[in-house]
Amino acid sequence: MDDQVKASIIIPVYNAQNTIRRAIDSAVNQTTDEPYEVILINDGSKDGSAAILDAYASRYAYVRVIHQANQGITRTRENGIRAARGEYVFWVDADDYADKHLLAKTLPLLESGADVVIYGTQYFCENGGRADNRIRKNISDAAYWKQQALNANLSTIWTYGTRRAFWEGETAPSEVARSAADGYMTIRIFDKARVFRVLPDILYYHLVDSPFSIRHTFNGKRYLGNAFLWYYRLKCSETAYPENVEPCAARAMSGYIKAYAMDTVIHDLTEEDRKNIIKALRDLKRYSISGRIRDKLLGWAILHNQLWLCRIYARHKNSKTQQMNQKMQKD
Rank of each mutant, 00 (worst) to 15 (best):
E246T: 14
Y97C: 07
I41H: 03
W158A: 09
V245S: 02
W300N: 12
A94F: 07
G225E: 06
K146Y: 01
G299E: 11
R274W: 01
R233G: 08
W91T: 05
R282F: 09
A152L: 09
Y14P: 03
A193N: 06
Y260C: 05
A280R: 08
V38D: 04
E238L: 07
D182S: 04
A249E: 05
D3M: 12
D295N: 13
D191L: 06
Y287M: 08
M324Q: 14
S49E: 05
I189M: 07
L309V: 09
A180Y: 06
Y62C: 00
H304I: 04
D47P: 11
Y14L: 14
I157H: 01
R315W: 09
T321P: 01
T76E: 00
F196W: 03
N29A: 08
Q30W: 06
N325A: 03
L234M: 09
A69H: 11
F190C: 02
H304E: 13
T31Q: 10
R222C: 05
A69F: 10
M1T: 13
F90H: 10
L234I: 02
W308F: 12
K320Y: 07
A180I: 03
D99W: 04
S112C: 09
K137I: 12
Y256K: 09
A259E: 04
A55F: 04
F124Q: 03
L207P: 03
R294T: 15
Y160H: 08
F166H: 07
Y313D: 06
G291M: 05
I39R: 07
F166A: 08
D268M: 10
R251I: 07
T217V: 15
Q17P: 02
T186S: 12
A114Y: 01
L224S: 03
K146E: 04
